[in-house]
Design a protein around this nucleic acid. Sequence first.
DNA 1: CTTGCGAATGCAAGGGCTTTCATTTAGGCA
DNA 2: TGCCTAAATGAAAGCCCTTGCATTCGCAAG
Lengths: 333, 333
Amino acid sequence: MSEPNRKTARLEDVARLAQVSSATVSRYFNSPDVVAERTAKRIEDAIGRLGYVPNLMAGGLASNRSKLVAVFVPEIAHSLFNDAIEEMVDGLSAQGYSVMLAMTRANNARLSKLVDMALGRRVDAVILTGVVSDRETRDKLRSHNVTTIETWGLPADPIDVAVGFSHREVGRETARFARAKGYNRPFLVSASGGRGEARRIGFEDAWTDAGGTKPGGVEVSTPTSFAQGFEVFQTIRAQDPMPDLIVCASDWLALGVLFAAREAGLQVPGDLAVIGFGNLSIAAEMRPAITSVNIDGELLGRQAAEVLRRKALGEDVPRHTDVGFRIIERDSA
Amino acid sequence: MSEPNRKTARLEDVARLAQVSSATVSRYFNSPDVVAERTAKRIEDAIGRLGYVPNLMAGGLASNRSKLVAVFVPEIAHSLFNDAIEEMVDGLSAQGYSVMLAMTRANNARLSKLVDMALGRRVDAVILTGVVSDRETRDKLRSHNVTTIETWGLPADPIDVAVGFSHREVGRETARFARAKGYNRPFLVSASGGRGEARRIGFEDAWTDAGGTKPGGVEVSTPTSFAQGFEVFQTIRAQDPMPDLIVCASDWLALGVLFAAREAGLQVPGDLAVIGFGNLSIAAEMRPAITSVNIDGELLGRQAAEVLRRKALGEDVPRHTDVGFRIIERDSA
DNA sequence: CTTGCGAATGCAAGGGCTTTCATTTAGGCA
DNA sequence: TGCCTAAATGAAAGCCCTTGCATTCGCAAG
């Protein structure tokens, strides 16, 4: 930092200044406990004087470990995953991993290109969050033998390992909750795609198993939005008899429904109850606060990081890890 | 993909199979136009057969260009920047850059650590989006001589270059807009921190310059939220005379204010008008749709990518690029 | 003052690519 | 056919680290 170094400092420069070999400096970074304390001091000093920052590309090349993780998401602008991702990124950073974020835009051609980029950087792991992968991509990931963590869902046949929760079970549990709270005419606003359907089916199953009649519903396209909730309310309104509980595929939808309901002069939950999904912070902030399903993003991130750690040590890792979910009861249902 | 290769294929393996030197294969990837068509065909074929994916770490090491860009943001969960980031990531991907996303959590110690990580990976550029950097970090970025793009704001003395817009001018323009629309008693819900203040001051200046009396206001902490808007409405309500226009530091705030106003039985914009900032998609979806200030995230991303391109060619780049902004007039004001 | 042994360090061979410079090839023209 | 030039390709020297193995050091025990 103080030296007017023409080029960026290298390991060897540090070594020379600290009067050790570059191997020792390398060890200082990668296995500090093996370096004598006095030596470490000298090295630290040299690093500071030179403003040295290790070249992780060279390191990765030599060690064949990149300390890079690619996280794939469909999008970030209006994503339900953001909270979870945020916590996941935190967890990974804490373990020294850098995170490459890639947006697939629910587009398989893009996904494939981005996977190539990730593989090209020899990422230590690929994390797919709510991403639907096509056969080709799955094969590529498998054949390249990279740790792949599918998360959010909990697919029966994961590419490598899955850390998530059962959407089917979310549906079931929601039905039980609804029943316990005494609702009689639930209406499902479900999202298109495997996970949304799984929740719908789970709800329907548990509901009819418990003696209810198959609930009405409507399917909306992902990503779900506030506006969709707004619109859907018109459909709901037209039902006769009107439902007494709207189970939404996302908090955005719930917000829209709730808003439209209030505008129409309905009391929530008095005239119409609403349940969301995702537990976005706005669910808690809204008045009435929205009952929603929470996924523990932090736990998810920690488990993902844990999987990486164990894989790195060559340990066996279960193919499925269920992190569960929790219905957060608030005012709206 | 078909060959049972024990290790991942290397450039040399491709070269051997295609009966060319590895230099030629390298050229096939990096300057395709220089490779004869017949040769290219053979190489493509070999790549396909081996399922070869170039090792970007090795490439980066050799070329001293990583094709990696680090994007720093304070957070992603409830960020105003998400739309812009999304578009920026798209723009950079299109140019072959991978994006490393780092969250600073508005914490300088974290920022510093993350900057080290980025520098360690020898990123081609660092993009700071709405990130406030301390002196130490600025110095480090400067001394490491990495292209640094500060964006969202337009600081007077950027670390390297800035691509953004003037928050002061947003404030001014909003005041002009308010005046033109005939509002008389604006009230500012401003965000703490340099950018929020700049907008407030801009508004106040333009408003008083035009003969208005200094508008009332309240400052809220970032990140701004729906709940804050909700709360702030109570303060607004207590004003006598009540303001006729609430200028909010974010669409979240605007949404909260609007919601609270509706609950209180006020007509928007009849009894109370609201302006947001950020033009989140929910601003357009809301009923009444919220008048907001739009930043062209795509343009921002394109300009950032353009700066990288020109810097890479050794061209001079202006230290400031103003991408402007636009007030989107909708129903709420 | 040896000897032995673990702890600390050094040596040197890669890791997979890019790029400069040199060489070969192909094509056009006399 | 022969020569010249441009296009295409090849050879090899790095880029900056990590790590297995060899060596040295320091110190306790004999």
